[in-house]
Nucleic acid binder design. Structure first.
Length: 266
DNA sequence: ATGGTTGTTTAACAA
């Protein structure tokens, strides 16, 4: 089974990209973030034509928005309202899985970006990000209490590892790579004994990125990337990871998203 | 230190 996560940055203008990605990577489940699309305008029929019969989406006008597209039937859709803000930043589903003993849950997150100033006293957006992460840790703790298998994916908007950014030194005070964010995200992974899939396969020594800013003339040449997108597996899946891939080619598509898809095979 | 770009919705905001 292949599970893919991608911050698509508008689902409506990047349907052609989605089609190419499906053709190239053949995922069974796709988790999208930043669909930027209210539910009434979600392009359900176009997506079903790509082979995804089972689709759930949680959107709002202009901002945020998450969706799960699946070839496999699921149930128990949850749209958790983190921080009581009624924004569309989470959706999860549960499915039966032929080769796993128990149910498999897929949790799709879009963590707040946090604004520019990494000071929660001054910047409400940064405070929101930290509050969201705290609630997310408790949510994950509760989810993994049972015997189900869990995969947590999404745009976490944090690059926790030194090699998750092009320059640790230059970004250590930049939102997404500050010590408080890095520690908080590492605690979520550590407290819940999750496997950070991308680092599991890449090791600690290599630079790993999933996002390159639009504000560079040549993203590939400057290569000032960050790893903001993540896939975490619950401990009971540890014998099931098969492979992973960062689909960097997508950053060279015409009018691309600033994030590229990341895929896990279990 | 500054500005660089994109998407949504229509001048501003978020990333």
């Amino acid at each position: 089974m292949k599970i893919l996560t991608w911050n698509i940055n508008s689902v409506r203008i990047r349907l052609a990209h989605l089609k190419t990605i499906v053709k190239e990577l053949d995922p069974d489940i796709i988790c999208l973030q930043e669909t930027k699309c209210e539910d009434a305008k979600f392009p359900l029929k176009d997506i079903q034509k790509l082979g995804f019969k089972f689709v759930v989406f949680h959107g709002q006008p202009s901002y945020n928005g998450v969706a799960i597209l699946s070839r496999i039937q699921f149930k128990n859709v949850v749209k958790h309202d983190f921080c009581n803000k009624s924004d569309a930043r989470h959706i999860s589903v549960e499915m039966s899985c032929r080769d796993l003993d128990n149910k498999l849950c897929i949790h799709n997150f879009y963590v707040p970006a946090g604004g520019d100033d990494p000071d929660p006293e001054v910047n409400q957006k940064f405070k929101h990000k930290l509050d969201f992460l705290e609630e997310m840790n408790l949510y994950i703790r509760d989810q993994i209490l049972d015997k189900r298998y869990h995969v947590f994916v999404g745009d976490m908007n944090i690059a926790p590892h030194i090699n998750d950014v092009w320059s640790h030194k230059q970004l250590v005070n930049v939102v997404s790579h500050t010590n408080i964010e890095r520690h908080t995200l590492n605690n979520i992974i550590g407290d819940n004994k999750l496997c950070d899939i991308m680092r599991y396969f890449a090791g600690d020594d290599d630079k790993v990125y999933s996002w390159w800013s639009y504000r560079n003339r040549d993203w590939k040449k400057s290569n000032r990337g960050r790893r903001l997108d993540h896939i975490w597996c619950s401990q009971n899946l540890k014998n099931n990871y098969k492979n992973h891939q960062i689909f960097t080619e997508a950053r060279d598509f015409e009018r691309p998203s600033d994030h590229v898809p990341v895929i896990l095979e279990i």
